[in-house]
Design a binder for these strands. Sequence first.
DNA 1: TGCCAACCGGGGCGTGCGTTCCGTATCGTC
DNA 2: GACGATACGGAACGCACGCCCCGGTTGGCA
Lengths: 171, 171
Amino acid sequence: MRADAARNREKVLEAARELFAAQGYDVPLDEIAAKAGVGPGTVYRHFPTKQALFQAVTETRVAAMIASAAEPAEDPKQALFVFLGRMADEAAVKRDMSDAITVSPELRKGLHAALGELLHNAQKAGTVRTDVTATDLVVLMKGMLQSLHEGGNPAVLLEIVLTGLQSSRKP
Amino acid sequence: MRADAARNREKVLEAARELFAAQGYDVPLDEIAAKAGVGPGTVYRHFPTKQALFQAVTETRVAAMIASAAEPAEDPKQALFVFLGRMADEAAVKRDMSDAITVSPELRKGLHAALGELLHNAQKAGTVRTDVTATDLVVLMKGMLQSLHEGGNPAVLLEIVLTGLQSSRKP
DNA sequence: TGCCAACCGGGGCGTGCGTTCCGTATCGTC
DNA sequence: GACGATACGGAACGCACGCCCCGGTTGGCA
């Protein structure tokens, strides 16, 4: 690959990172190209489609988050809650986190699997309500993450969901 | 108003009711016109804008729901929870319920006020966590309602939110 | 029944966006 | 330093959608 090509590819990725994070997937591709200081055609030389560019930007972060699900934790419930907290923290700052679930089937599947594992463990331990499925959790989190960008208090909304997830045999 | 004009107006409203409920606000206006058996121009004779048509379709239902907030209930918490349950029931069947919050500022304000009242009463009674604001509740519900159309189990998701809303001084 | 105003249908305009095409400029090699 | 391949930029295309305009039609009153 030519040197300027590699340089431009990086400029595009950098601009895409910023704009996707700030405005989500809906940012026009021309705007990304403009911020990168290249033409739209150049973007398409490096990424076959807008969705592919978006995936290139987000998949690294999502993969890192999924990997962090394997970290040791006090107990299964904490493992799940810490993970959900990480998702909320990320989404509170970067708008593309919630879009990733919608736009890229691969990332959605990956998240689904990781969440399913954590959820299953916590449910087996009896500390999380057993009528929740992995799909429920994915879509609920997606909705909650979007709410963070519409004036919702991140800490409060997360706490509501986490509290609601706990199995309630006591009251 | 001429007789056929009134008839067409009703046909448009009927088609809009069905399509907005089935596909949400994003359904093309031409599709509504086609289903009503009229041209797009006819739709604009009766409603100045697509948003106005949407509002005409949804405001009646939302107003009825808001009015139901004044019904007597066992206690403030139940009043709030019953109301949220009604929202969830409606949104589980009609896709335009969640869009109404986004599209129409009036409807959003109305819901915000009604929810704020119910929330405030329940918080004063000490049965609902006090760090939640009306805005938090509106955006969280919007996110949750959208999740209902993406494979989430309505009863479970609602229960999670309701459980999470309760004040937790006991554990 | 005839006339006029109200109304209708649908083709068309403007816009925004993803994507493609091609003439031109640039890089790297011989 | 020249040449071929590679990459660039941005104009242009296709599409979808909200919205408007106009020639033709229809309804209801005199």
